[in-house]
Design a binder for these strands. Structure first.
Lengths: 234, 234
DNA sequence: CTTAAAAGTGTATTTTTTACACGTACTTCA
DNA sequence: TGAAGTACGTGTAAAAAATACACTTTTAAG
């Protein structure tokens, strides 16, 4: 009813299909990965794609993205950022579809196997991304650029790590994101100088005999830092 | 026909109204300004808003934005960047409308009076922006943030200046964008060190008795600089 | 012909980034 | 059992970049 009433205002305009697409990154403490799905509908059924859905009339665009993320990973409260609008007329031969893309960051652990099992999904290393349908390869490329841009100025890298992580693990993540090797010692110096990490008493020995101390991101201190006008810059 | 055929694929999805909105910045060599329009349609007829339009089935989203910019300023090839998607369900009481916002930068000169005369438009200083309809004030705020973010790493400031400009004028622009006074001498040093400005033999005396030399942005040298991996950073 | 006002040039200081050397803890294996 | 290997952790010197600030130049106006 309400919609019928509303439409009275903008009679002349033509509604279009609107979708959200989610580019999902994960990090297995070695390599940056991308979660891709085998498409279940025509056209292009069976081909690889990022995951998406049409936006429903009763949900916001960002809720649609959250819904998609929740549905396909079984996870809640996943970190997600808008990436951009893909609005070419002929981008989807199936129909005129405008897509708003998001990129999401998730911690790779046990639970994530769920998506891989339940849906025909698979984690791909960044250097092994297969050809995707439509403009999805473009989206992935843009998502990676956006991730690189953001990770420099916002502490979003932590979204890809377990709650407790070591400095060397964090460095490996940044190495993976920027495809370059940061200096071990300078990296540590810089990140610690920002005072947003709490050092724990535990060590992680999975990577070395000596073991590396575990740290935890302190969001509160980060916010205080921002309040004071100090930037997070890696 | 084609559309009818296409729709066969995504039967279950509901099309929605999609609009573009353009946040238009201008610079009069003194202050950063915003071009606002008196809305001509219900709801909110007569109130101030940024300019926009619905996206038509046969045009891309970015073409729609270009169309709007061209139509309301009489100018062609205006610099424009996507800003983001505004997709809350209840953002427009007139209907469920998803808006993709763009921000645009134009040189303030004589031609621009056209918009102001033909349409009920007006340039507002940034500190005097009136209450706008819907979430347009939010869009304006985000656009300003985006402008600040971008202007630091991309030479987009030049889009707001005439082709020939002086270094002090460029500085005043950056002062206006960032709402802070940069050091005259350091600013000059930095921008000149990037070698993307061609010094001309003419002087502009509108601002001082001595006159300041005019410069021109050299896009080619800028691209070469980027090729070499050197960043433009102000 | 002095003054005022903005433009232009130079330099010293501080801060940040970069490069790199050494000591430590703990496991493995001869 | 002790030597070797490996990743972790700390410190320091040099280079580069950002910042602060002083002085000179040009020219219209009084």
């Amino acid at each position: 009813m309400r919609n019928t009433h509303k439409k009275a205002f903008y009679q002349d305009a033509t509604p279009l299909l609107v979708a959200v697409d989610c580019i999902i990154f994960g990090f297995d403490l070695e390599e940056l990965k991308l979660l891709l799905f085998k498409r279940k509908v025509e056209p292009f059924k069976g081909e690889w794609s990022v995951i998406g859905s049409f936006v429903q009339p009763e949900e916001s665009v960002s809720s649609a993205a959250s819904r998609v993320l929740g549905a396909y990973t079984g996870l809640d409260g996943i970190f997600m950022e808008p990436l951009g609008c893909y609005g070419e007329v002929e981008r989807d031969p199936g129909a005129r579809v405008i897509s708003q893309a998001y990129f999401a960051l998730i911690r790779l652990g046990e639970e994530e196997a769920q998506a891989v099992e339940t849906y025909q999904a698979k984690w791909f290393g960044l250097s092994a991304v297969p050809p995707l349908i439509l403009d999805h390869n473009q989206m992935v490329e843009n998502a990676l650029q956006a991730l690189r841009r953001k990770a420099r100025y916002r502490p979003i890298g932590f979204e890809l790590l377990p709650e407790k992580f070591t400095i060397p693990q964090l460095k490996r993540l940044y190495d993976a994101i920027y495809q370059q090797e940061f200096d071990r010692r300078n990296f540590r110096k810089k990140i610690l100088s920002m005072n947003v990490l709490d050092k724990l008493d535990e060590k992680d020995k999975s990577n070395s005999k000596k073991g590396a101390f575990l740290y935890r991101f302190n969001r509160q201190q980060y916010e205080e830092m921002i309040e004071k006008g100090i930037d997070f810059v890696l």
